[in-house]
Design a protein around this nucleic acid. Structure first.
Lengths: 353, 353
DNA sequence: CAATTTATGGCAACCGGTTGACAAAAGCAC
DNA sequence: GTGCTTTTGTCAACCGGTTGCCATAAATTG
């Protein structure tokens, strides 16, 4: 007999039963093939290539699959194809509310199109970001970089490997999704001009931030157009704390209205000014950027130039998926509109400083 | 000549060069084996099982790997082992700031221990949550459920398949990480009592929320102890908007202090009361839960019972990873401490309603 | 009805690792 | 040098799908 000599042939299950792996271990296409009386490759075809098998075998197989409660093993599928139905999103800081809506937009689009989102954070470090990107690259079909901190060449290098879409920055040769600051800033500055302001300060963000420069350019252009004076102030970091710290420069600048690189700076600035007894907007107007979560919690609620961040996330995901499916431009920038959200922190000067 | 007759014999690359697949396609253990002059399985062992091969072959292989810039193919590894070095995190609502710190805590722990975090959202729907969980289960080694909405049995069923850790809820037989509300609530209620309040309202969260009941229980117990009267009010949804809507019930209740299920409700409630001309905290005290991002943006800044959410996320991830590596209790609850964060929205009643 | 095209299913190789079984080599005592 | 144990590397089977190629059955055509 060819019976192999296995002494205690019994299923040597350990004393503790671990997870899974028991009887109800997942069904494979081979199980389906057996039940349906066809070859495994036919099952594979029935389940992926529509129309490749006859309707009646199709049904046979589908029934068997349903009965066995079959679901594909993503790894087995990924191994030969290289496709994982997954894409990565890297953000600089998960706790920065700017990214919340981006994440949500991307996540919604992913789920909607049957992809899974993998999230990573760079902790604001270019090196960490690159490491995370490389790591993710191995397991995803494509990558979205939101406000990346690494330099253009690294981004292009990644993009050569797999599709990459960048949010909040323009990189030559790589598809990007960027809010067009022009409209929102124009509205903001015109509103300030209409309320009689004559000197406007811009509090800049981090020097590496491409977007900060965009905004400064926009502010200058809009002030020019409205014949206002624009001055630029620097911040130490783009957070609430950074906003507090820049308050004295703001007061010293003589400006009656301030636009800040982002809402966090605006909120910190407002807190510090109010703590010093200054009334917003009666003595100074403050306008932020992004319209993040919580921008309307303040008193007065913050006037801000909204970037449609959810749209950015969704747009980037859509572009990425189009790219993955062979549609869509290989590069070029998708522009989304910004708009002024007029709340209570800006208005007419009633009692000058 | 055997030269095939290809008119424009050039490497028929399209006008655009596609991603990857070029020369630098990834090295495999077989390439390493060839370079190092050993068998592929030896390479595999050298790279995973430490000590299984001799130091000198080890070095040979490592050098070859470094030279070829090798990195494992996660799918090829996952196929036979079933291990992916990945775990999933499902949250009810990505835009709810309560989850931000949880996500961050879990992400940090994951990265730290060389795992990748996969994020999914349930949009507050038990059905979506279950679908997402099932989907993730196929590709991850374990799962963290933050404030799950599905019922206990479903959670236990999932936990039978792979390790699952639950945050913000206690499920019998499944490891959980839960903030212990007792200390924080006691502090809050004692503070209110000390300021002369006698009737306290609790604005509850969603009926499915286990945590909302915990908090209500805690409030009742603490009020009992301090001999205050406690009344319960219901909210429509646990958001800023829900907080606005419950304002009239709060006024009608006759309570001079309110604790809300979460900070969002507290913020909405405060906004609505202030809009009605009521002064906080002079006419009514408000205390939230969680200490989310933005809780201190309000005027007055919100007093709240802080849950260490980052710690919850990190703790859950740690437990999960321990479980995956065979350490740690299979079940039981890990409790983390809550504390009162006293800010401006609570205090003594100066001008009763 | 034979000839030919087309639709359909099967075979087997492959993706890139892991792992149990085993044999060759090395170490060691006597 | 012989016999025995321990290291170390190789062989080959496997994980669960995908896919090119081929044979056969069915459909179409003359």
């Amino acid at each position: 007999m060819t019976e192999p000599k296995t002494p205690d042939a019994a299923p040597t299950a350990g004393p503790f039963k671990k997870h899974g792996r028991d009887g109800k271990s997942n069904a494979t296409i081979y199980d389906i093939a057996r039940v349906a009386g066809v070859n495994a490759s036919t099952v594979s075809r029935a389940l992926s290539k529509p129309g490749r098998v006859s309707p009646k075998t199709q049904k046979l197989i589908e029934d068997a699959a349903a009965e066995l409660n079959y679901q594909v093993n993503p790894f087995a599928r990924a191994l030969p194809t290289g496709k994982t139905n997954t894409f990565g999103l890297i953000v600089a800081d998960i706790t920065n509310p700017t990214f919340f809506d981006i994440i949500r937009g991307a996540e919604a689009t992913a789920t909607d199109r049957d992809y899974t989102l993998v999230l990573a954070e760079s902790a604001e470090s270019p090196a960490t970001e690159l490491t995370a990107a490389r790591r993710l690259m191995a397991t995803v079909d494509g990558l979205i970089l939101a406000s990346p901190r690494m330099d253009d060449d690294n981004i292009r290098a990644l993009a050569q490997d797999k599709p990459v879409v960048v949010i909040n920055r323009e990189v030559e040769g790589v598809p990007c999704v960027v809010p067009d600051v022009h409209k929102g800033i124009s509205e903001a500055v015109r509103s300030l001009a209409a309320h009689g302001h004559q000197k406007v300060a811009y509090v800049a963000g981090p020097p590496e931030s491409w977007m900060s420069e965009q905004r400064w350019d926009g502010v200058q252009a809009a002030c020019d157009w409205s014949r206002l004076e624009a001055v630029r102030l620097e911040s130490t970091k783009p957070t609430v704390d950074g906003g507090r710290q820049v308050a004295r420069d703001v007061r010293a600048s003589g400006a009656t209205a301030v636009l800040t690189y982002n809402d966090l700076l605006a909120i910190g600035l407002m807190q510090e000014l109010q703590a010093a007894g200054i009334t917003v907007p009666d003595q100074i107007s403050i306008v932020g950027f992004d319209d993040i979560f919580g921008a309307d919690f303040t008193t007065p609620p913050l006037t801000t130039v909204r970037s449609p961040l959810g749209e950015c996330g969704a747009g980037a995901a859509t572009r990425l998926l189009d790219l993955l499916h062979g549609n869509g431009e290989p590069a070029g920038t998708l522009s989304v509109e910004t708009e002024l959200v007029l709340r209570g922190s800006s208005g007419r000067i009633l009692s000058p400083l």
